[in-house]
C-alpha cells in the first residue's frame, strides 16, 4: 500500500499526467460531440461501436502518459532514488504499473461514457441505448482496453528507458505499423489478426457486421482478443521487470 501511495504521489506531483489524461478524455468526448453534431440526419442511427474509433486516439495519449511516467524516471535518474528506497525492484515497478493502470482505466471509462453521453445528448436515438452485450462492451470495455494498453506502454518504457524512443515506438506501432502489416500481400491479413492493438479494437468493436466488413473476420472473439492482449501485456511486463532487475539502475 505504501508503494502504491508513493507512486501515486510521484505520478500526480508533476503536471504532465494530468494534462495527458485530460487531453485523452477531451479527444474522445470532443470527437464524439463533433461526429454527433455534424453527421447528416438521414444517415440513420449511429452505432455504439463508433466510439471505439475515437477511443483509440484517447488510448494512444494515455499510453504516452504511461510510458513517460517510466522514462522520465530514467531521464532524471529518480529511478535510482526509487530503487534505493525500494531495493525490491519488482515490487517498485509493479506498484508503478498498478497506479498507472488504475489511472488509465479511469481515463478509459470516463472518456467512453462521456463520449457516449455526448452522443446520446446530441442525437437522442434508440440505437444508442446500452442494452446488448456488444453495446456495453463498446463503452464499458474502454476500461480494460485502456488498462492493457497502459501496461504494454509501461513495459515498453521500462525496456526502452528513453522518452523519445519509447513514445516514437508506441506511436509508430499503433498508428502506422499495424495498418501497414495489414496490407502486406498474402501473409499480412494473417499476421494482422494477432497484433495487439487490432485485438484491442476487436474487443471494443468486434462482432458487428460493419467492422467485419472493414477488417475482415478476426480469428479471435472479442473477449478472447482481450485475454490475448492481456497475456501479451503481462508477458512483456515480466520481460521488462526481469530486465530491470538485471540491469544497473
Amino acid at each position: 500500500m505504501n508503494l502504491l501511495a508513493a507512486e501515486r504521489i510521484k505520478l500526480f506531483s508533476t503536471r504532465s499526467p494530468w494534462w495527458c489524461t485530460a487531453v485523452a478524455i477531451a479527444l474522445v468526448v470532443g470527437g464524439m460531440a463533433l461526429l454527433a453534431a455534424s453527421a447528416p440526419a438521414d444517415i440513420g442511427p449511429i452505432p455504439t461501436w463508433v466510439t471505439s474509433q475515437f477511443l483509440q486516439f484517447g488510448m494512444v495519449v494515455v499510453m504516452v502518459m504511461a510510458t513517460v511516467s517510466v522514462t522520465t524516471e530514467y531521464r532524471f535518474s529518480t529511478i535510482r532514488t526509487t530503487f534505493q528506497a525500494v531495493p525490491n525492484r519488482t515490487a517498485a515497478l509493479l506498484a508503478k504499473t498498478a497506479v498507472v493502470g488504475i489511472v488509465a482505466t479511469i481515463a478509459g471509462l470516463v472518456s467512453a461514457f462521456g463520449g457516449w453521453a455526448m452522443m446520446a445528448l446530441l442525437r437522442p436515438d434508440p440505437a444508442l441505448a446500452l442494452t446488448t452485450d456488444a453495446q456495453w462492451r463498446a463503452i464499458a470495455g474502454a476500461g480494460p482496453a485502456f488498462l492493457v494498453a497502459a501496461v504494454l506502454a509501461v513495459a515498453v518504457g521500462i525496456l526502452v528507458r528513453q522518452t523519445a524512443g519509447a513514445v516514437a515506438l508506441l506511436l509508430v506501432w499503433t498508428l502506422l505499423v499495424e495498418n501497414l502489416i495489414r496490407v502486406i500481400p498474402d501473409v499480412g491479413p494473417l499476421i494482422y489478426q494477432w497484433l495487439p492493438f487490432t485485438n484491442i479494437m476487436n474487443f471494443l468493436a468486434g462482432g458487428s457486421a460493419d467492422v467485419e466488413e472493414e477488417v475482415g473476420v478476426m480469428a479471435l472473439t472479442p473477449w478472447a482478443s482481450l485475454a490475448y492482449v492481456a497475456a501479451l501485456a503481462g508477458g512483456l511486463l515480466v520481460v521488462a521487470i526481469v530486465t530491470a532487475n538485471r540491469r544497473d539502475a
Partner: peptide
C-alpha cells in the same frame, strides 16, 4: 541515507513532493 547526485530529482516536482514519496516507500 545517500546523496550521490543532487540532480537526481524531477525538475517539475516540488521538494516536498519528492520527499513525501520517498517517505512513503519506507513508512
Amino acid at each position: 541515507g545517500a546523496l550521490l547526485d543532487a540532480k537526481w530529482v524531477h525538475p517539475n516536482r516540488s521538494a516536498r513532493s519528492q520527499l513525501r514519496w520517498m517517505a512513503r516507500t519506507n513508512r
